[in-house]
């Protein structure tokens, strides 16, 4: 496996919405590099034709029936929010671009 680069660390931090200072980036580069080097040992195994495990349990079709069971009071829904106007959860203005 190719070695993880500083650019990878920065790209992944962007995906994960984390902001890292230079020191943190360097530290993560080293630590992630070591862990990824360790997990490379999986490549010793030939897994061609092995079905990946999706679920440890062999069950399927677990559904709920289409019944309305109720909702939270709005006050309870908003209670833990850092910022609301009593109706909406508030966030800084969302711009058109994502």
């Amino acid at each position: 496996m190719a070695r993880i680069t500083l650019e990878d660390v920065e790209y992944v931090a962007g995906l994960a919405q984390l902001t890292l200072d230079d020191q943190a980036k360097q530290r993560l580069l080293k630590e992630m590099g070591e862990i990824l080097a360790y997990v490379d040992k999986l490549n010793e195994l030939d897994t061609d034709g092995i079905e990946p495990m999706m679920h440890v349990l062999d069950i399927s079709n677990v559904f709920r029936e289409d019944v309305v069971t109720g909702s939270l009071d709005r006050d309870a829904a908003l209670r833990n929010a850092p910022k609301t106007d009593g109706e909406y959860f508030l966030v800084p203005r969302i711009l058109d671009t994502e």
Binding site: T69, S71, Y88
Partner: peptide
């Protein structure tokens, strides 16, 4: 009648954040 993963009503036009529960929040 209800949402896809929880028991909140699937209704249009309710006052904001009144058809919400721990699951859909």
């Amino acid at each position: 009648k209800s949402k896809v993963f929880c028991g909140c009503a699937n209704e249009f036009d309710a006052p904001p954040n009144t058809h919400v529960c721990p699951i859909c929040l």
